[in-house]
Amino acid sequence: MARRLMLALFSALFVLYVAGPVLWLLSSSLQMESEITAVPPNWLPPHPGMHNFVAIFSAGDSAAYTNRGIAGFLPSGAANLLPSLYNSLQVGLWVAALNLLVSLTAAYAIAVIDFKGRRATLYTVLATRVIPDIALVVPLFLVIRNLGLINSIGALVVTYLAVTVPFTIFILISYFEGIPRDLYRASRIDGCGHWGALRHVYLPLSLPALVAALMFAFLTSWNEFLFALVLTQSAAAQTLPIIIAGFVMDFTTSFSFVNAAGVIAILPPVLLAVIFQRYIVSGLTAGAVKG
């Protein structure tokens, strides 16, 4: 009994620890600037309102911009928020889609087709991830600049793929190897070529892993800061983390506004998680336990 009580207590503490900042983000995004700086703090919004969100969505519109009471506190980069959100979404979706396409075919080849040097191929792919990003960022900058891709979404997509593809290949391979080999054999006998076996056996039976790979790629590119900072220089290609980080540089920043931006930033990943939640748990543990 005492044991269960302790368990419940610590679970509650842990939930508070993890969810607390998110809840504060949510609560403060609905408050006025003066309300969030109050002491003692307003845990719940005294006069909940959408004014911060309205400010975000009208920040690009200069007329509305000057008319707002809050305008004086708006960070200087506020107008870039919506474009950067769009950039982030674009980069995230491209990375998620291309990552899956590339990794799926590569993982299939390595896990299923018995070619010379398959182990070596896998280790080479994985070895690229041993080098820390910080060591790569300058050479990468030079390469991207020479390609004339600086400050483009494409530069980010390509760079993020280099990060996500090796891991995704690794996860998919261990998932594929858990799929009985006889199913592959049966499909080949029944008339499938390699594309057919991929489509009729490996795709349908690895949905959880595929969803996990999608989420992983999207979140990685959604959160990424270092490469985005170096490879993009203007609002044309900058992503959300860069713009939001820029807000806190201003002396007179409205933190309720920044927090509203934060809420918008966590929305797409949360939405993804909700849509795919029934696949996620089994997918994330896929590499760990073969079942």
């Binding site: 006889d182 054999r185 049966a186 499909s187 080949r188 006998i189 008339g191 039976l205």
Partner: peptide, 20 residues
């Protein structure tokens, strides 16, 4: 010749039915 061009049928010890 790859298996799908050999036109043989096969039955496996594990049955190998498509679970989906």
């Amino acid at each position: 010749l790859p298996p799908h061009q050999r036109e043989v049928a096969m039955v496996f010890q594990s049955y190998a039915l498509y679970p989906n």
